[in-house]
């Protein structure tokens, strides 16, 4: 077996590869559905119906996609610069904590000021938080994969302490949760009688902004150059360190905005289960989109379809809704494989 680089890649392949990967992943996961004693076709049908079958289902799916767009963008921009930020989960909670601290009465502004204020401060906190592992990487060469991962556990423990201790809401009947944010901080609902909130529009705006930045600005060019070759960009006299710091601020900020958006858009108060792993799912979202900011929107919606659909599927047929986690994991591996086949062809000899 020999691997041969392709000279050029047809556009059809580039778009088709992730689609193909998704289909293969679903075929593989059909085995698990068969094991549960259900027919895969009807199960996937139920999943699609549960996620897209009604206006309500659709709004639920887009609501779920909102934090995934933010965390997906966070991963996409970081991985572009080969900054391996796996700490999206921690930065998510840093953003949510910041919004809880400032938004539960400490500062009161009219809604049109309050919401941008919370998003900006949250993003700043998340970005600065990612600067710690980034600084450790550039100064002390400590691998950021491990440090960001381990910091996720630390942040979760801090949140645990906050919601059981100093921030515990006395009005919450003993539940471990913080006080709700003030009304001015709550994001307006977009579709009446649904949970779809302004955060979705903000996420779309961020995706557009990131696409524009990566495609048309010097900052974007520098981020891509540093990711493509650290040596070459140093040699070309690019501000490598500043670029990495900028990337970290952007990435951490975006992940933290997911936390602010979930807090002020969906729940209204800080709990320990505010994120069912949005930070980690962001990696799958970004990889499915081949790190393209606009692709992130589509792949975030796709992952949201899987999670929302799996809930109703698991109720209809007797299967654990962990099937959604398995499917996304298999999607991640398959998309790697598909991307590989767009760059190489296998020659059997």
């Amino acid at each position: 077996m020999r691997l041969e680089p392709r000279e050029s890649v047809a556009l059809g392949w580039q778009v088709g590869a992730p689609l193909l990967a998704v289909i293969i992943a679903m075929a593989l996961c059909s085995g698990l559905i068969l094991w549960a004693g259900a027919s895969p076709l009807s199960a996937w049908g139920l999943l699609l119906k549960g996620a897209l079958g009604s206006t309500f289902a659709l709004t639920e799916t887009l609501t779920r996609a909102t934090p995934l767009i933010f965390t997906g963008l966070a991963v996409a921009v970081a991985f572009r610069a080969k900054l391996w930020n796996i700490g999206g989960e921690g930065q998510f909670y840093v953003g949510a904590c910041m919004a809880t601290w400032l938004g539960t009465g400490l500062i009161t502004l009219p809604a049109w000021l309050m919401i941008p204020f919370l998003f900006l401060t949250g993003a700043l906190a998340g970005g600065l938080f990612l600067l710690i592992p980034t600084w450790l990487k550039t100064q002390l060469k400590a691998d950021e994969v491990v440090t960001t991962l381990l910091l996720n556990f630390v942040v979760l423990l801090v949140v645990n302490w906050l919601v059981f201790g100093p921030w515990k809401d006395p009005m919450a009947m003993g539940w471990p949760q913080a006080a709700p944010v003030i009304d001015q901080a709550m994001l307006p609902i977009l579709v009446p009688k649904s949970s779809l909130h302004l955060g979705f529009i903000l996420a779309l705006a961020c995706a557009l902004l990131m696409w524009w930045m990566m495609r048309f600005t010097i900052w974007g060019f520098e981020i891509r150059a540093v990711g493509a070759s650290l040596k070459a960009s140093t040699f070309a006299g690019m501000p490598v360190r500043a670029t990495i710091i900028r990337t970290a601020l952007l990435s951490g900020g975006l992940a933290a905005m997911a936390g602010v958006s979930e807090l002020c858009g969906v729940k209204g108060y800080l709990t320990l289960d505010l994120s069912p792993g949005f930070g980690y799912s962001g990696i799958v979202v970004a990889m499915l989109a081949a790190l393209h900011p606009l692709g992130v929107v589509l792949s975030a919606i796709f992952i949201a379809v899987i999670y929302i659909g799996a809930d109703s599927m698991s109720r209809a047929i007797n299967i654990s809704n962990y099937i959604a986690d398995v499917t996304t994991a298999v999607c991640l591996l398959m998309v790697l494989l598909a991307m590989f086949l767009t760059r190489y062809r296998i020659r059997w000899k």
Partner: peptide, 9 residues
């Protein structure tokens, strides 16, 4: 992700 999710499943 595969190991964690598959073992829970």
């Amino acid at each position: 992700m595969l190991g964690v999710s598959l073992s829970s499943f």
